[in-house]
Amino acid sequence: MLSVIQVHQSNHIMREDRTLIVITHLSQLITLLTGFGSLILPLILWVTQKEKVYQMDSHGKNIINFQLSMIVYCIICVPLILLFGLGILGFIVLGIVSVVFPVINAIKASNGETPRYPLSFNFIS
C-alpha cells in the first residue's frame, strides 16, 4: 500500500499511503474517547501531510468539510430542542452519521476510492 509516485503538476515526489488516509478518516472517531478532537486531529493530519501524501488533499478537504458541517448542524439542533424536542432527535441522527460515515469512507479509502460525505457543505474546495 506504500509506494512513491511522481506528481507532474508541481514536480513534487509524493508517496501513496492509503494507511495514513484511512487513519485520517478514522481519526474523526477520537471524539468517542475524548469528547473532542474530531475536527482538530484530521485537520492536523491533513495540513501536515497534504503536500507529502498522494490524494491526502482531497480526502482531507472532504473530512474537514464534513466535520464543519456537523458543527453547523449541531448548532442548528440546539434551538430545535425547544420545538417539540426535534433537536434531540437531530443530535441522535448526527451522532449516528458522525460514526457510520467515517468508518464507511475509511473502508472506501483503503480500496483506493475518494469517498464523499453526505450532507456536507463545501467550506473548503
Rank of each mutant, 00 (worst) to 15 (best):
Q49K: 15
G90A: 05
Q67F: 01
E51F: 00
R15A: 01
Q67D: 04
N65A: 03
S98F: 02
M56H: 09
I75Q: 10
I5Y: 03
Q6S: 13
D17H: 11
H12G: 04
Y54I: 10
H12T: 07
R18K: 14
I76Q: 13
R15H: 07
L82G: 13
I5N: 08
I63E: 01
I81F: 14
F36G: 10
G60A: 06
I88N: 04
M14D: 08
G90V: 06
V53G: 01
E51M: 04
T31D: 11
S58T: 11
G95E: 08
G87V: 10
L33V: 09
L41D: 02
F66D: 14
R18C: 03
V78G: 03
K61E: 12
V99R: 03
L83W: 14
I5H: 06
C74A: 05
I13D: 14
F84D: 03
Y73I: 09
L29H: 01
L80F: 15
C77I: 12
N65M: 08
N11R: 09
L94W: 05
I71C: 14
I92Q: 01
M70I: 14
L89G: 11
V7Q: 13
E51S: 12
R18Y: 04
H59N: 01
Q28M: 09
T24I: 02
V78I: 15
V72T: 11
S38V: 00
L82S: 10
G90K: 06
T19K: 08
G95A: 10
L83E: 06
L89H: 08
L33N: 03
L41C: 02
Q55W: 14
I75W: 09
T24H: 00
L45T: 04
I76H: 11
H12C: 04
I13E: 14
I5V: 07
I63H: 00
V7F: 13
I96W: 03
G90T: 07
T24R: 00
G90M: 07
L33H: 01
F84S: 11
D57F: 05
V47N: 08
V97L: 13
V7P: 11
I40M: 03
V47A: 13
L94A: 07
D17F: 08
I81Y: 14
L43Y: 12
L39W: 15
I44N: 10
I64D: 09
L29Y: 01
L41N: 02
I5G: 05
R15K: 07
L86G: 14
L45I: 13
H25Y: 07
M14E: 13
S10F: 02
L80W: 15
S10L: 02
L82Q: 12
E16Q: 15
H59A: 00
S10M: 00
W46F: 07
V53W: 03
I21V: 10
I96L: 11
L80Y: 15
M56L: 07
F66R: 13
T31C: 11
I23M: 07
Q55F: 14
M56V: 05
H25D: 00
F36Y: 15
